[in-house]
């Protein structure tokens, strides 16, 4: 065994299949990738294809079967004020919530990595903890906390002798949702950043120290560049997450049915079109349009992120 380990590199070094840390040029790879791809085809590719197919048809009234309508559903979606209202809402959410959440995560990661913190390991695990809380439970919990039935919002109002704190009112609903999402995902993003920081070789810090760089200088010159890839990935995931916003508003809807409409977010719109309105073709179109916009934005972020230094 040991002998062959030693010998092998010699005989295979020049082999055409070697690349990076070593790969085999071999169709046997399909053996391993095949099963994944088969399930992937069923659960990802087939639904996408089916959705595109659906989006090109329209049910005729009174169950007259469906007819091919070309791009009519798309034109309708793009002129649908409900769709744009929902889109605008998640757009605002994206522009405000994502930077706040990522900035908090970044600061937490830098603080934990800085070695200036007491009990850093404790902070790391506790801040990450909300990620292990199911989104549904998080929303139920915060929903009760927000409520004026029992919960902390009511307690605070009693304490201050006002009724000013109304997290579930139409003015505050979006920030309230943003708070839940932030609470859930700061820890997760913090961990992604923290993991990236751990991969910075110690020599870089030593070199920076020799050059007389202080804390802020080290963060700017060493840590932030090392975090670039992680920040791009976290941003893309957060964008996708914002555009998919569903669980939070859909569960809070029972608590504030008059504030959260059936088309509060594009995803809720698609869901309600299907399951309350039986408009499957139009629902599929809304889903595709949203997926397309998300993919484009994620792609642009990726391009910019890999080109620009932070």
């Amino acid at each position: 065994m040991t002998e062959s380990v030693v010998q092998q590199p010699v005989t295979r070094t020049g082999a055409p299949g070697r690349r990076r840390r070593g790969t085999f040029r071999d169709s046997k790879g399909w053996l391993f990738v095949g099963p994944f791809l088969a399930v992937f085809a069923v659960t990802f590719l087939a639904p996408i294809g089916y959705a595109i197919y659906l989006s090109l048809y329209r049910d005729q009234a009174f169950f007259g079967g469906s007819v091919f309508v070309g791009l009519d559903n798309y034109t309708e979606t793009l002129q649908d004020p409900k769709f744009w209202e929902a889109f605008g809402r998640v757009g605002v959410f994206l522009v405000v919530q994502v930077p706040v959440m990522l900035a908090l995560a970044l600061l937490a990661a830098l603080a934990i990595d800085s070695a200036r913190l007491h009990a850093a390991g404790f902070f790391r695990i506790v801040i990450f903890l909300p990620y292990a809380v199911p989104g549904v439970v998080a929303v139920l919990m915060w929903g009760y906390i927000y409520g004026d039935n029992f919960g902390l919002a009511a307690n605070l109002n009693d304490l201050l002798g006002t009724t000013a704190i109304q997290p579930l009112s139409s003015t505050w609903m979006l920030p309230s949702i943003a708070n839940i999402v932030t609470w859930e995902f700061v820890g997760y993003n913090m961990l992604i950043f923290y993991s990236a920081l751990r991969t910075v070789p110690g020599e870089l810090y030593e070199a920076a120290a020799i050059d007389g760089a202080g804390t802020w200088r080290t963060i700017r010159a060493v840590k932030l560049p090392a975090l670039r890839g992680a920040i791009v990935i976290a941003t893309i995931f957060s964008i996708i997450g914002s555009f998919q916003l569903f669980n939070e508003p859909n569960i809070l809807r029972t608590l504030a049915p008059n504030v959260i409409t059936t088309y509060y977010t594009p995803n809720m719109y698609a869901y309600n079109l299907s399951f309350a309105g039986q408009q499957f073709n139009y629902s599929a179109t809304v889903a595709i349009v949203m997926g397309f916009i998300t993919a484009i934005i994620a792609y642009v972020v990726q391009l910019r992120g890999s080109r620009e230094a932070l």
């Binding site: 639904p47 959705a51 949203m290 994620a298």
Partner: peptide
């Protein structure tokens, strides 16, 4: 795979349900 990851999972939910 890269293309598919960018497609929101929930966008697939309705077509997956119908399928």
């Amino acid at each position: 795979l890269l293309g598919a990851v960018a497609v929101p999972g929930t966008a697939l939910a309705v077509p997956t349900f119908l399928m």
